[in-house]
């Protein structure tokens, strides 16, 4: 019924190479298109026209990429060179590593991994280290402040994020993303776990450092936060990572709560991407609507509201499962 694309190749390294190439290509194009989408969407929200270069302003992103690529890579004199250089890569790497786990269609998937959720939750935490290294290695107070905020924020919001995923695992009794999607054939889990979905979306917005949780790079306070000292394509990588993280979080939410590829009439993959991009538009809408929270309020929100709420949700789920 399902075919792992990786098993189609005889040479495992070739399979790996092809997978990474496909994912990288997709993520790059996706980031460019998302930047376009965000610009157009924010322009509509703000009663502007938005970028105008090329048809529908599509060329603007290409030129921007060209500018970023051709810019000199400046390294501050007193920066820790090693940390400064590897930080953007560390931020970007987890997304690439984990994207292969998503079941986009019911027939062909890259790889079905039986403990995919554990892997995702574990490895996606790595980008915090990247952000912290960026802040520490830049040797800049604004960057360091941004990094400190980022670590505190990401660690705090990871807990409600994980707690909101656990009910799904309890219901389906599996950690494979493919099996979780299969279990939503009749109805998506948004119907049984709406609170978990809300907690997940809020935490995911915080995890991806998007407004209103963008305090690590709050431009009015910290200039640009952890990437203050970055220029050229190193900055571009942070930029890419932000949008890739977004699509990663939204894909996870789609698989866990919105029923993945399931949907009438249209092909599997189309449904999957419709759901993902709808969530992304929602996240962009947040960004252009809300002011930014203060750092302590943000932490308070995670620990006082989200964590207890997700624990209660978990408790109720447990009781219901026990009784039914």
């Amino acid at each position: 019924m399902k075919t792992d694309i990786i098993q189609l190749f005889e040479n495992p390294y070739l399979a790996l190479g092809v997978t990474i190439a496909v994912i990288m290509a997709y993520l790059s194009v996706n980031a460019i298109m998302l930047i376009w989408l965000e610009r157009k969407l924010s322009a509509r929200i703000q009663r502007r026209i938005g970028p105008q270069r090329g048809p529908f302003g599509l060329m603007q992103q290409i030129f921007d990429m060209g500018k970023l690529l051709s810019k000199e890579l400046l390294t501050p004199e007193h920066a820790n060179k090693l940390l400064y250089v590897i930080a953007p890569i560390l931020v970007f790497a987890p997304v690439v590593a984990l994207s292969s786990l998503f079941p986009i269609t019911s027939t062909y998937i890259f790889h079905d991994f039986n403990i995919a959720i554990v892997l995702i939750l574990a490895i996606s935490g790595i980008n915090v280290i990247g952000i912290f290294l960026a802040g520490w290695g830049s040797n800049n107070k604004y960057a360091l402040l941004g990094a400190v905020r980022s670590v505190a924020q990401n660690i705090s919001y990871e807990i409600p994020l994980i707690l909101s995923v656990i009910p799904i695992v309890m219901i389906t009794r599996t950690m494979s993303l493919y099996d979780i999607t299969l279990a939503q054939e009749t109805y998506p889990f948004i119907l049984v776990q709406p609170i978990a979905l809300i907690i997940f979306i809020i935490s995911a917005t915080a995890e991806t450092n998007r407004a209103p949780f963008d305090i690590p790079e709050a431009e009015s306070e910290l200039v640009a936060g952890f990437h203050t000292e970055y220029s050229g394509m190193r900055f571009g990588l942070f930029f890419f990572a932000e949008y890739s993280n977004m699509i990663f979080a939204c894909a996870l939410a789609t698989v866990l709560f919105l029923g993945g590829w399931h949907g009438p009439f249209l092909p599997d993959a189309v449904w999957f991407f419709i759901k993902v991009y709808a969530l992304i538009v929602l996240m962009m809408w947040f960004r252009w609507t809300f002011p930014r929270l203060r750092f302590d309020q943000l932490m308070k929100f995670a620990w006082v509201v989200l964590v207890p709420l997700s624990l209660i949700n978990l408790l109720i789920t447990t009781l219901v499962l026990k009784i039914v």
Partner: peptide, 16 residues
């Protein structure tokens, strides 16, 4: 002021 608080959109409305 709202831009300082991180809200971008009112800025353009006000400027309009």
């Amino acid at each position: 002021f709202l831009m300082d608080l991180g809200a971008f959109t009112p800025f353009l409305y006000a400027f309009d």
